[in-house]
């Protein structure tokens, strides 16, 4: 079902939704950007229709709505262990096609990998519903078309901002009822970005002989292991588990998990001082291959969704896209020589 809504109509629709849902989407925080005088665009609570940001990529991904940066797993009280209760409101997330595709990548790790689903992720995830924000064109550095993530499924509705009005494609309730109430029926066909200025060619296969290639050595000097690329990536899912004892009551504490990054020192440290990938070039190789090769070997799809964030946030201007294209060239050369 398609509907055309005025900003006022869409605003009223959101107000009604807000009574039953918490709503997240791309929002702008003035003055909170990394550089002085810049804004931070990221996922946050949406209070009114004008909060939704259409003209910029968010620095961080929507994953934190259902995979919090820090999450309590267990509470301790003396010898007693209790599980935190979760009372989560039904939650709507307005997001782009790449980020919606990224959710299916997180689902693979948290729900499908290993012997059983991650119950903490699963119980949040079941309360999350998605509304697609259609992209007219990508942002600089996007390569969703190369990754096949310019299209998406799994959303309840799709929204397009067109001149002075919104077009809504309602695929499920409550959106059909809301469209009827607040909009005018209209023909709305989904539109997808069909071309990005940037093309990334993902090699079919990566030879482990390339692990030693000098390509990685360049990154060994450039990467400062800050982990920004992984924090902003919509598909990065690694975490560390740690126990803490509350300072004001040492009888009580909790076990929690916090996001971790394969780029940051300590990720692989083991007893006896042993560590792997001490070299930062090797860490970049590890991350890049997970995104475009290892994950696909395990789950049949690439992990990377081509959102372009890792490159945008890197203080050293390290380009993921260029790295993948170089790898592809090296594999092509190898194929030709073979």
């Amino acid at each position: 079902m398609g509907y055309k809504l005025t900003p006022a109509g869409f605003g009223a629709l959101l107000d009604e939704l807000a009574t039953n849902y918490q709503i997240f989407g791309p929002v702008r925080y003035a003055g909170k950007g990394r550089l002085a005088g810049t804004d931070l665009t990221t996922y946050g609570p949406v209070r009114s229709v004008s909060d939704l940001v259409w003209d910029a990529r968010t620095t961080f991904a929507p994953k934190e709505v259902f995979f919090p940066v820090k999450e309590s797993l267990l509470y301790f009280s003396g010898q007693e262990i209790t599980e935190p209760s979760l009372e989560m409101k039904e939650t709507l997330v307005f997001l782009r096609a790449c980020d919606l595709n990224a959710v299916s990548r997180l689902d693979k790790i948290f729900l499908a990998n290993g012997p059983e689903p991650d119950s903490y992720y699963a119980r949040r995830r079941q309360h999350i519903h998605f509304v697609l924000m259609e992209c007219q064109e990508g942002f600089p550095g996007c390569f969703c078309v190369s990754m096949g993530t310019n299209m998406a499924t799994g959303h309840q509705a799709a929204l397009r901002l067109e001149n002075d009005h919104y077009l809504l494609q309602a695929l499920a309730e409550p959106w059909i009822a809301l469209g009827e109430r607040y909009g005018q029926p209209a023909r709305v066909e989904p539109v997808w970005v069909e071309k990005n200025p940037l093309t990334v060619r993902v090699p079919e296969r990566v030879d482990i002989a390339l692990f030693q290639h000098e390509l990685w050595r360049e990154y060994a000097c450039r990467c400062i292991a800050c982990g920004r690329c992984t924090l902003s990536c919509p598909t990065c899912s690694c975490f560390s588990v740690q126990d803490v004892i509350y300072r004001d009551n040492p009888e009580r504490g909790e076990r929690r998990r916090v996001w971790a990054s394969c780029q940051i020192d300590g990720f692989t440290d083991m007893a006896g001082g042993h560590q792997v990938r001490a070299d930062r070039g090797d860490r970049i190789r590890f991350k890049v291959l997970h995104k475009i090769y290892d994950f696909r070997r395990r789950f049949g799809i690439n992990m990377c969704v081509g959102c372009g964030r890792c490159e945008e946030v890197c203080p050293e201007y390290i380009s993921f896209a260029r790295c993948v294209n170089t790898l592809n060239q090296l594999m092509e050369v190898q194929g030709r020589d073979a």
Binding site: N113, G114, T268, F295
Partner: peptide, 24 residues
């Protein structure tokens, strides 16, 4: 093999090598 592990369940990512998880 021994690798850093934080879950044993194939979720935390610390023990991954190529497309294998040492814990799995």
């Amino acid at each position: 093999l021994e690798r850093r592990m934080h879950c044993g369940l194939g979720k935390c990512g610390h023990c991954k090598i190529n497309d294998f998880y040492v814990c799995l």
